[in-house]
Design a binder for these strands. Sequence first.
DNA 1: AAGTTGGTTGGGAACGTTCCCACGGGAACG
DNA 2: CGTTCCCGTGGGAACGTTCCCAACCAACTT
Lengths: 346, 346
Amino acid sequence: MSRSTAVERAGRRAPTIIDVARRAGVSKSVVSRVMRSEASVSSVSRAAVTAAAEELGYRANAVARSLVQRRTYNVGVMVSDLHNIFFAEVLDGLYAAAADRGYRTLITTGNRDPLAEASALEQLLELRADGVVLAGSRMPDEAIAAAARVIPIAAVGSDLRLSGVDVVVDDDHKGAVLAVEHLIGLGHRDVALIDGGKGAGAAERRAGYRSAMAAAGLGAHVRVEPGDFTESGGYEGARRLLNGLRRPTAIFASNDQSAVGALNAVIEAGLNVPEDVSLMGYDNTALAALRHISLTTIHQPRNQIGEMAMRAVVRRIEKPGLAARRHVLAPKLVVRSTTAPPRPIG
Amino acid sequence: MSRSTAVERAGRRAPTIIDVARRAGVSKSVVSRVMRSEASVSSVSRAAVTAAAEELGYRANAVARSLVQRRTYNVGVMVSDLHNIFFAEVLDGLYAAAADRGYRTLITTGNRDPLAEASALEQLLELRADGVVLAGSRMPDEAIAAAARVIPIAAVGSDLRLSGVDVVVDDDHKGAVLAVEHLIGLGHRDVALIDGGKGAGAAERRAGYRSAMAAAGLGAHVRVEPGDFTESGGYEGARRLLNGLRRPTAIFASNDQSAVGALNAVIEAGLNVPEDVSLMGYDNTALAALRHISLTTIHQPRNQIGEMAMRAVVRRIEKPGLAARRHVLAPKLVVRSTTAPPRPIG
DNA sequence: AAGTTGGTTGGGAACGTTCCCACGGGAACG
DNA sequence: CGTTCCCGTGGGAACGTTCCCAACCAACTT
């Protein structure tokens, strides 16, 4: 087999720093200095190099640079599920924060498959990313911990408790408390929860629901209906709740997706939202904001979550000694049209 | 300044092929051969190398490999907007096709900003991606053409006509015809369009609407209401249509997002869908599938679009001489609950 | 006048691989 | 028994940069 690659056979190779140097009549060192906009280059040389580079269509080779610098200025982001719009805004925050600090963001995904996630992470390590952000990972803790020994890692959207990994989470417990307090404040007593099962943050939300109910003296009214963060899970859960003996006057679904399913079940049962049943979601996704749905929900500062995660990783890239931390952000209540006081008794 | 990088100061450097060779008692060549699973290595050496690599936690350095091979086996994907769930499924297709062919997928985004898109593309070129897929790009044609001279490029989700760039599109004209024929087949005559403005595919959908109406002898009933592919655009458009003199019995919105806005306007006007007004969208996004919305729409084979695009790029990476092509895929009608025959007159 | 300084330049080593070539030794062959 | 062949191996060059060091020249200082 010939030494030349497919790409090269195409035509001429991409110009290198040497080609530019030759054309500009200077040494490769000068070209390198101009490209990195270092100060100590005469304006004559600088102009010659700039012109030559322009004429040749020269583009710096990040691969070679990374090799010699032993760092890439890339931060890898492993997104468990690109279908989940939640992560889109997190990515916005990640991007902005990375760009601010002179880093690029490289996205890979595991398509919700732990095995694929592990291989995506492995890929990032082979590419020698300087740091990694895991968004909603479902990998086993030990796999993450092993990687964290090699490279700074931050995790968002999954509440793992690993030393050596920065974790950025919304305070789901507090968010759930906010939701339940809102409903109780409207006068509801029979507030049921549609659970999120093993989903990210579901346990905290459940605990928040329980403690807010207890704090209001409504411990006896606690009712947790199984669910799984999906629309159909919400639908089924709401149906069971509505067919039950004591129909709740308010339903708190663990996320917006399942709240939309629940909304449908309520309407199918011939009931009105919010007159007959109040309904809440969690996450404040684009779904909740749709006029046609207009769901009262809890907002997570997604953008800020991404920003914090990137900041945490970069901080530890640049000062490798530092310890990883846990960053907790405050959620916010967003009132829309699906919650109202319960019908007066009688 | 010291030569050592931040990463290195942390602790020991990542092990190299040389470290493995020393520990296994062989030369670096043998290690390299084992890592690339080449045949001509004795089983003894192979075992020694494997063990040594394992013990040291050796991981191949893709940066160094890319440098010497003059190719990275990375295909860059520039997604104009990660918030658009449409692209998530395209990405699935891209990923699967890339993995099949031994390539990795690197995602970047331009956040709908042409300038940011251009710099994202530039970044991919500096990283020496072997090829690029543009998903929904809004960059000027000339910028794309310039890049296409350097590297194989495929575009999806935007219907540019550039030689040197593979283009994969859904046949939007045909999709619109499908939609209108469905409505006409149900008995509708007053079918209005909520337009997509300058959005990707909007012009073709408009043309398809017009020609299907004309073909059915309903040219006089053509009514194109401005819109912009957003929910609020759909809402406003539908309001204007419903307040007009001759209220349409069916509304074809240029995408699902605007159809949901229109749905809301119809309901607000005290009308029922589909009894009073039939409603169609386009794209078959997750939104349309929600029980609560259950929108009749046109399905684009998103997964397949991604697959085709990746296949096209890889084909030209491996045979640089080949010409770029245009690939057109067929859309499909998906009937749900928002379309029905019009009310009988009288 | 000689030394010092500072700005500018060029060359060589290094980064961690892959690829090519050469070499040695045993098996197969004549 | 000598030649040829093949398998396994090792070493050096190359990939395109950055970084360090040395060298040069002009201007300034003492």
